[in-house]
């Protein structure tokens, strides 16, 4: 009886999962078919393995350039955010100065504000006054800044859980504040670094709104922007468009298969704590 119930639950869940994955499955099969075949029979399996749609999508989206830009932005944002965020988190956790708690409080208070509040003035200041449009570094800088409060919050909380005796022992051995951070604290931060990295990396990789405000030239576009441009500016190339969408997903899926455990934890822990 109990076994039967479990079997029913299993097949029901499996059925829901297949429905859930339906859009992806339909997407995949149609990237191998000509557009006319997709419109006529969207559910039919492809009759032959053709990659024309992919080569067209790669050309139209300037895929490799977009991919490299996205990697540059994501990797740099994550690294800079990690270094600065963990250092500040360490400072705030260990030095209970008034100025530190004021800054920390301000960081937290402004975390509530949605990006829409910043976008118009940001365009004015950075694209307008400073003329920094189409500058990957600007996008990295802004992404680091927007993600800093959250990172500092998590690093500070985690550092407070590391016994101060460890710091003191290092101090006796002649380590300065900075060296203690580098030799003692930083290696212990590994689990929280993974969490923050996953959260920030996915957010930056998938970001459209912020980067699209500054990156408009073809050679500076990220994947999300390149896909958006391809799908709005071309008409009736449906199958190549779907191939483009799939190309946009593949890099993340590859990551997901490797580190799904950390990714699920990171994404959820990140927003529940934040």
């Amino acid at each position: 009886m109990k076994k039967l119930k479990k079997a029913i639950v299993f097949f029901l869940t499996l059925f829901v999962l297949i429905l859930f994955m339906g859009p992806f499955l339909i997407l995949i099969i149609n990237t191998f078919k000509p557009t006319a075949a997709f419109i006529k029979t969207p559910f039919a399996l492809p009759t032959k393995f053709m990659l024309d749609n992919y080569s067209l999508a790669i050309k139209r989206m300037n895929f490799w350039v977009a991919m490299i830009n996205t990697v540059i932005i994501t990797v740099n944002t994550v690294l800079i955010n990690m270094v600065i965020g963990s250092m500040t988190g360490y400072l705030f956790a260990r030095k209970k100065w008034k100025i530190n708690s004021i800054i920390f409080g301000m960081f937290l208070a402004f975390m509530v504000a949605p990006f829409q509040v910043y976008m118009i003035p940001m365009v004015q200041i950075y694209a307008g006054t400073f003329g920094l449009s189409n500058n990957l570094f600007l996008v990295i800088y802004i992404a680091v800044g927007l993600n800093l409060p959250f990172a500092v919050f998590l690093y500070k909380g985690f550092t407070e859980g590391i016994p101060t005796q460890l710091d003191e022992a290092a101090r006796i051995d002649g380590c300065s504040f900075g060296l203690t951070y580098l030799r003692i604290v930083l290696p212990l931060l590994k689990p929280i670094i993974v969490t923050v990295t996953v959260f920030v990396a996915l957010g930056v990789w998938n970001d459209y709104l912020m980067s699209s405000l500054f990156l408009t030239k073809s050679q500076d576009k990220t994947l999300a922007i390149a896909i958006k441009t391809f799908l709005t500016n071309h008409s009736a190339e449906y199958s190549p468009m779907m191939a483009g969408l799939l190309l946009g997903i593949l890099p993340i899926i590859a990551f997901y298969l490797f580190g799904q455990k950390y990714i699920i934890e990171g994404v959820v822990a990140g927003s529940v704590k934040g």
């Binding site: 149609n30 998938n206 970001d207 459209y208 896909i227 969408l245 997903i249 993340i252």
Partner: peptide, 15 residues
């Protein structure tokens, strides 16, 4: 949840 909203929206648009 690991895929950006832009891409998801377009996939469903085709659906």
């Amino acid at each position: 949840n690991i895929i950006g909203g832009i891409i998801l929206g377009y996939i469903w648009r085709f659906i």
